[in-house]
């Protein structure tokens, strides 16, 4: 079947098998390998990307279900050569080691801050609780997201207003 999916602002019109998982479409078919996979059971969260502005586990979404929808992946966070505050925060606070869970964590962090620009530590921990990191023990991820919250530009506030609408 043919699907039309907007990924990071680019429209892809692709022929697929109906059973193709969204994570494989993103990685194998259009070559955006920043989104990873780490389990089969939607437990690990390394495959998190946005489907119409909501983070979802793309190993448990069929590509066909995304037909006519928008997808955003980690590759879209950097804009105009400027890293997103969550990317900067992860670097500043050493919120990543092997880097495998990082794209999913970044997409969840961005979604959290879009809705809640000043989350508490507990809110941050709850937001990332469906994603496993084997390297960091989470503390530096929490610090990284806190850093991003504290160092977001006014653009961040605009984003919040847009989301609210």
């Amino acid at each position: 079947m043919r699907v039309n999916i907007e990924v990071n602002g680019v429209n892809y019109s692709e022929e697929i098998e109906p059973r193709l998982l969204l994570v494989h479409f993103i990685r194998d078919q259009i070559g955006l390998t920043g989104t990873h996979w780490g389990c089969d059971t939607s437990n690990c969260g390394t495959c998190v990307l946005w489907l119409d502005d909501l983070p979802v586990k793309s190993c448990t979404v069929l590509t066909a279900m995304a037909d006519g929808h928008r997808v955003r992946t980690v590759e879209d966070l950097e804009q105009g050569g400027e890293l997103d505050p969550v990317q900067k925060g992860f670097m500043q606070e050493h919120g990543l080691q092997c880097g495998f869970c990082t794209p999913g964590m970044l997409m969840t962090a961005r979604a959290l801050l879009d809705r809640n620009p000043n989350p508490s530590d507990l809110e941050i921990r709850e937001a990332i609780s469906g994603q496993i990191c084997r390297c960091t023990g989470y503390e530096n991820i929490v610090r990284a997201i806190r850093w991003a919250a504290a160092n977001s530009s006014s653009n961040g506030a605009l984003d919040v207003a847009e989301v609210a609408q």
Partner: peptide, 9 residues
């Protein structure tokens, strides 16, 4: 129930 990302779906 499950986790925040799964609950989105």
């Amino acid at each position: 129930i499950a986790d925040p990302i799964v609950r989105n779906r």
